[in-house]
Amino acid sequence: MTTSSSAVIRSAFLADALNLGPHWVYNQSAIARLFPDGVYNVHDPISQYHPGKSAGDLTHYGDQMMCQLNAFAAAGHWDQEVYQQKWQAMWRDSESYMDGATKETLARLEDPSSPASMSSDMAGASRALLVAAMIDEASLDEQISAARTLTQFTHGDPEVVDAAELLVRMNYLLVSGTNLPDAVQEACQHPYPELNAKQYFEMASSRLEADPLQAAEDLGLTCHTSEALPVLLFFLLRYPDDIASALSTNALAGGDNSARAIPLAMLLTQANGWGSYQEKVYAEVNQRRHIDDILVQCESEN
């Protein structure tokens, strides 16, 4: 794992922690009243969905990303089976919010005759981008395979699985030197089995002159990939070199802002590098020392 990939991984955790405060609040006016200067620092959750969490903690998405990182460190490489074992064990003692995809996946692990989760939530694809950063020296095909497998473990909707591939393709293009707007467009032009990425790109790009909060609301603020992905593309295109504004505006937009923020921060950091803004917010992440210990270990092994 390279130093630049470590920065991208850190950005995923800071983005999730930053969104704990306004996560799953759909009233933009309510968020604006509580965050009149924007969302630039961590905050206690203002919704009922994250009991026991406080400023600097991670959402249930971040908790699962931490499980990915722990599994990677334990195996010394990415191993889907190791991750699944640690993921199942994590939920035995975790007080983190358990969403529908998690409940259905746990039920199937206990009873293989139970139906698989067909969740269409974007979060499944968002977390998969972390795997690509972990195996940054692998080929594009290997990164795509790992991301699709991880996503499908908890989110069986084909569009979400395709979205994971889309994010990996964007990241790979950025690593190869493509600028962010071109990487977004090129990845969206690729044909996917179920994801109409080209249409989502057109939906996002057609609103670039609109008020960003209104544009996000028009595109949709729910967890579903059909809404969350166009909003993510919008913020990538609207703020290609301004991660602070991108993350704050995305948080102010509300809804499932963390699922959008994780790949948003990762891709913007990949495109523009690690800066003072990321350093400031990352310093507020409560588990940063544990994250750093693992990343330093992984860097030293490569």
Rank of each mutant, 00 (worst) to 15 (best):
T3A: 13
A259I: 13
A283T: 08
A107F: 05
L221F: 02
S248G: 11
L208H: 08
R289N: 06
A246L: 01
V82Q: 15
H77M: 06
T149P: 08
S119N: 12
M66G: 10
A17N: 08
L69Q: 12
G62F: 06
N250W: 08
F72D: 07
S4A: 12
A12D: 06
F72E: 05
M1W: 06
Q28E: 11
S54Q: 15
Y192G: 13
A123H: 00
F235P: 00
A12T: 15
I31S: 05
M90I: 09
L18R: 03
V175R: 13
A265L: 05
A163W: 00
M1Y: 09
V131G: 02
W91M: 12
Q199G: 13
S145T: 07
A125D: 06
E301P: 00
Q189F: 05
G52P: 12
A265K: 02
L174H: 03
F201A: 07
V296I: 09
A132G: 15
F234V: 00
E301T: 12
E110R: 11
A123Y: 03
Q152C: 14
N302C: 12
L252G: 08
I9Q: 02
V175I: 14
G273D: 00
A32Y: 06
G156F: 02
P181A: 09
R10G: 07
A75Y: 04
S276N: 12
M66E: 11
V281F: 10
P181H: 04
R127H: 04
L69H: 04
V281D: 05
S126P: 09
S94W: 06
D37M: 07
S139L: 05
D242P: 03
W91S: 14
Q278E: 15
L236W: 01
T249H: 06
P22A: 10
S54I: 15
A125Q: 09
A216Y: 03
T149D: 15
V131L: 14
Y277I: 08
A146I: 02
Y277F: 15
E217D: 11
A163C: 10
I144P: 03
E95H: 12
V82R: 12
A71S: 13
L69V: 13
I46P: 10
V82T: 13
S117R: 10
V160D: 07
L20N: 02
K280M: 10
A74Q: 13
E104R: 10
N196W: 04
F13C: 09
L213A: 06
L195P: 00
E142Y: 06
F13T: 02
A15G: 03
Y282S: 04
D136W: 02
Q143F: 00
L221G: 01
H190M: 09
R33V: 09
P193V: 01
P191T: 12
